[in-house]
Design a binder for these strands. Structure first.
Lengths: 325, 325
DNA sequence: TTTGACATGTCAATCGTTTGACATCATACG
DNA sequence: CGTATGATGTCAAACGATTGACATGTCAAA
């Protein structure tokens, strides 16, 4: 691979001059500029970003740690993050933690070794303390870790409220809520808080069950949901904490001969693309994934710039009513 | 951030000694080894991989270019690729081309500047010639580019055959095939070849339409499918070239009052997770995504090692029959 | 006592680029 | 003519590691 030296040699100028052309600094005549570009072309020269990174002490890399991009929500999140990362001049390092604390730790370590400019955490299985020594810009998604790490989330409480009220408003008499592991201390737990409050206020019968957001073991979903529907055959409304879980609910209802929405109304969460192409299409709470992504990247940039930013970033959600309710 | 110098200073040894500890070379006494590790711990030292990369002329980075990770197939592919990349000691640079040739070109350029060790192309919108100057290990997925770039694909012809025969075997009288843009010259086109052959051999009435694999414009899918089903109300079988398209077909059938599978049988392609949690669950052709991913990473590694490998890597597909047929 | 293994040190080059300091020489302007 | 500025050059340090060559010990075995 050609170096800046080769270019200088070929163009008959000094490396300083080539560097000047490359970085638009100092005085350069049109003639040499053209000549230099010409030689770069002929040699297929590409400046070595690794050398640049070393000198400038910035890699333009953002590390992204997610449970798994194969989960539709995180896949869509990653897509938007990548888009804005690119807009801001960053590259994205993709890591799937599979919610394994060891992998997560290892990935954080790897990112430190690679001097990423910032880390976006969409997976957080570690103790709060472990995130405090990262020593570089971090943004968490849907989790608050101490007061020194900014987070972006959507208004989970409001989302839970909207979803539950929708079911109550439709006249559901017994509502099930399927949520994630409440011990993980995610902000998503507020959805469940809202659920409890709404359901208690309206005096609606209800039942709550937890699952791990474990996309990798779908049979777990099926088992849990089937048990739920069989133990409580009078359930006529389900609020699931993700659209994927909601999809399983719909499928299993159908299989048990219950129509959706006639017999059981189902509302999901996230509004992933799949929610709109399912049948029946899924009522859900829309998280503003794109705006959350833009904000996350922006928060990294602001931390690097040392410009101002908010630590708490809670974006509004929206109820999307479709066919499943 | 602490450097190897700081560690040496603190431990009262030379950088050479620290480097020896780090890389397990030469003689090191247990005592100094411990001492050095201790100091690294206390300083929170992490070797600078950027400096290493510069010297070793290898970044341990693999660039991944996909249409979009938000598409379930590519999301799952990316997950497995990331897994094996990690196993092999690589990191993954994620890029969504959105099937835009300019973005694709720009990403390839970026990867050259960043001296990635290899590139995995899951998106290919450029002219064949443009891929020939990449000058580093490349593996393409589902596309054959000349004779010097290895590719991994699944047995598309066989897949198309299995899917079509399934529909014919179930007694379908008029079968629609919805495929991607045939001009992109993907190996996936062989599915359509197989479709034509099977349908002609059995003398089955049929109709074929093309869509761009454009996940970003789902309304396109809906419009096309709706038109199709309205112009040909006697269609009783559909072979879609992806599970997502199949999902739309199912949804639109339902909306038009046609039952699946009673009135219209539908078979998809890929066997993404969604295929199993839809209702009715989707019959489909399973691509061995995980094995394809392992192979892709392995092919990068082998090119780097200059060990032997096959240029043609076609893995078997499998018919998964579920409820939609 | 000699030899060799073990343990460490010094020194310098190297990877590819950026950048500041400073020198040189036109050319143009007042 | 003096001076400013434009255009280029030389030189060297810096980024953070690795590595080879070579020196200098200590200590134990032969």
């Amino acid at each position: 691979m050609a170096t800046i030296n080769d270019v200088a040699l070929k163009a008959g100028v000094s490396v300083t001059t080539v560097s000047r052309v490359l970085n638009n600094r100092g005085y350069i005549s049109e003639a040499t500029r053209r000549k230099v570009y010409e030689c770069m072309d002929e040699l297929g020269y590409r400046p070595n970003e690794i050398a640049r990174s070393l000198l400038k002490k910035q890699s333009n890399l953002i590390g992204l740690i997610l449970p798994s991009v194969s989960h539709p929500f995180f896949g869509e999140l990653a897509t938007h993050l990548e888009y804005y990362a690119h807009q801001y001049g960053f590259k994205l390092l993709l890591c799937n933690s599979l919610l394994d604390p060891n992998k997560e730790r290892e990935y954080i370590d790897m990112m430190k070794r690679n001097r990423v400019d910032g880390i976006i955490m969409g997976s957080h299985t570690l103790e709060v303390g472990e995130y405090k020594h990262i020593n570089r810009p971090v943004v968490t998604m849907d989790r608050r870790i101490g007061d020194n790490i900014p987070f972006v989330a959507s208004d989970n409480y409001r989302g839970g409220e909207l979803a539950t009220k929708l079911l109550v408003g439709k006249g559901c008499k017994k509502i099930a809520h399927i949520c994630g592991n409440l011990e993980l201390n995610l902000l998503a737990n507020q959805r469940s808080e809202a659920f409890k409050n709404v359901v208690n206020q309206s005096g609606t019968d209800h039942v709550m069950i937890q699952t791990d957001m474990n996309v990798f073991d779908q049979s777990q979903y099926e088992r849990i949901i089937e048990e739920l529907l069989q133990q409580h055959p009078d359930i006529d409304g389900v609020f699931a904490t993700s659209d994927i879980i909601a999809a399983f609910v719909v499928q299993i209802c159908r299989r048990l001969g219950k129509d959706v929405p006639r017999d059981v109304r189902v509302v999901g969460y996230d509004d992933v693309n799949a929610a709109s192409w399912m049948f029946p299409s899924l009522s859900t709470i829309r998280q503003p994934i794109e705006e959350m992504s833009r904000l996350a990247i922006d928060l990294i940039q602001r931390q690097l710039d040392e410009s101002e930013f908010d630590y708490h970033n809670i974006l509004p959600v929206e109820l999307i009513e479709r066919e499943s309710t």
